[in-house]
Design a protein around this nucleic acid. Structure first.
Length: 423
RNA sequence: GGAGGAGUGGCUGAGCUGGUUUAAGGCACCUGACUUGAAAUCAGACGUGGGCGAAAGCUCACCGGGGGUUCGAAUCCCUCCUCCUCCGCCA
């Protein structure tokens, strides 16, 4: 959420942010809810103050004395009034908080104007998408593909979008996970293996609840949620804590399976490995000093990019425009790999700076040496990387005439051999 | 899963027969004095968050979470969570 003080004092900034993100949010009703809450707060605090003063006076009086009884009668009335007003205050506070939570984060000045994904800026393109010839085929059309990636039995056992990975398919996924983790650790991220279920409080702190409840798998009877990304447990790791300034930046990476119901998805987007309900991903996460968060965003993006360079997969970097930025992000880059068979770009990483937007909701702070106060950190995250789409790109870009797939040199030590076979 | 015990500021630790408690005392941290410097000692300051205010400052909340009783709750009641001990079950 945004700083309520900022919303109160500079509503024009918030209005501009809403416009740049092409959202429709009623800022005036947010301001009204906030003002109503503050008026009630003043009232209730005054009543409490009266009550506290009387409390001290009564403590000094002899219990049962006429003065005591008179005061007691008086305070019973105050107490009843306070109870009524306090109820109204709680309701107003709830309304105000919900209203504040409906406001999006402010986009950074460097975010381009635009409404649709077509207006995202292409920052750079690496490798040559045209290098693979006309013989390239979509990965699901490669002969033998169903033997290694069994969607039919997955549907039988669990449901659509839950494939089995078999033989060299499972081996390649495992090699990628291992490669990503090793490289990320080398880049200074501390490896974490988090719980893959989280409680409602955690899902709320990172914004999955209440809005995206339908996107998560939920367990009964404990009401735990299967993580849609490692970002959720990792961000919550430091929830409600105050860090040493010297400990910043804190860099973490984590491999988890990720679970997404993907309600509403359809069409060619969901074919093959493009979009599945359970997938492996290594997530990168940083908690940083506010003064360096944009430099840290660039280095985070470069860490993710270097994985693709080492795998020799053509990719491009997009800078998201205001309309495609997302509710909580200040600035976001997408990394997309070239899938030569489908002749389209697939998103494999999304690197974002949330500034203090997430940290405020999760109350993750550091003790500032300069001010002596606890200040909010800036949080960043990005994939490093999502496995199935990288795997799909390797299958499509590296398919050779004999029907085998060449394994990128950097991956061979993890895969154990130079080619993947569908036999 | 069953039975007991315990959760108090950055840490430690009283209060827990309800009312001068404004949460004692100690440690750590910070400032000052003494000192060539340091240690020790002495003095002072020392939580987080919200609201009002130009500011100085004023005010409210917070004793694991939530609810209740009461004029008044760290203290009494209910409930949930976590940790510890023991028992049961189990890879």
């Amino acid at each position: 959420m945004l700083d309520p003080k900022l919303v109160r004092e500079s509503p024009e900034l918030v209005r501009a942010a809403i416009a740049k993100k092409h959202l429709s949010v009623d800022l005036d009703s947010v301001l009204a809810a906030d003002a109503a809450w503050r008026a009630l707060l003043l009232e209730v605090e005054q009543l409490r103050s009266v009550q506290k003063a009387a409390n001290a006076a009564m403590a000094a009086l002899k219990k049962g004395s006429p003065e005591f009884l008179a005061k007691l009668g008086e305070m019973k009335a105050v107490s009843a009034q306070l109870k009524e007003r306090d109820g109204a205050l709680k309701a107003a506070e709830e309304r105000s908080r919900e209203a504040m939570l409906s406001l999006p984060n402010l986009p950074h000045a460097s975010v381009p104007e635009g409404r649709t994904p077509q207006e995202n800026a292409v920052v750079s393109t690496q490798g040559d998408p045209g290098a693979v010839g006309a013989h390239a085929v979509a990965h699901w059309d490669i002969p033998g593909f169903p033997r290694l990636f069994d969607f039919e039995r997955g549907a039988k056992v669990t449901g659509a979008g839950f494939p089995f990975f078999i033989g060299d398919g499972a081996r390649l996924a495992r090699a990628l996970i291992n490669f990503f983790l090793e490289e990320d650790v080398r880049a200074g991220y501390v490896e974490v293996s988090p719980p893959i279920f989280v409680n409602a409080a955690s899902a709320t702190a990172t914004g999955q609840l209440p809005d995206k409840e339908g996107q998560m798998y939920e367990t009964t009877p404990d009401r735990l949620f299967a993580v849609p990304t490692a970002e959720v447990p990792l961000t919550n790791f430091l929830r409600d804590e105050i860090l040493d300034e010297a400990a910043l930046p804190v860099k973490r990476c984590a491999y988890t399976p990720c679970f997404r119901r993907e309600a509403g998805s359809y069409g060619k987007d969901v074919r093959g490995l493009n979009r599945v309900h359970q997938f492996d991903k290594v997530e990168l996460l940083k908690w940083v000093h506010p003064s360096s968060s944009y430099a840290e965003l660039d280095s985070l993006r470069d860490d993710a990019e270097s994985l693709l360079r080492k795998l020799e997969i053509p990719y491009r970097v997009l800078l998201m425009c205001g309309g495609d930025l997302g509710f909580a992000q200040s600035k976001k880059y997408d990394l997309e790999v070239w899938a030569a068979g489908q002749k389209r770009w697939l998103e494999v990483s999304s690197c974002s700076n949330f500034e203090a937007f997430q940290a405020r909701r999760a109350q993750i702070r550091f003790r500032s040496k300069e001010s002596g106060r606890a200040e909010l950190v800036h949080t960043l995250n990005g994939s490093g990387l999502a496995v199935p789409r990288v795997l799909a790109a390797i299958l499509e870009n590296n398919l050779e005439a004999d029907g085998r797939v060449r394994i990128p040199a950097a991956l061979v030590p993890h895969f154990g051999k130079s080619h993947l076979s569908f036999a």
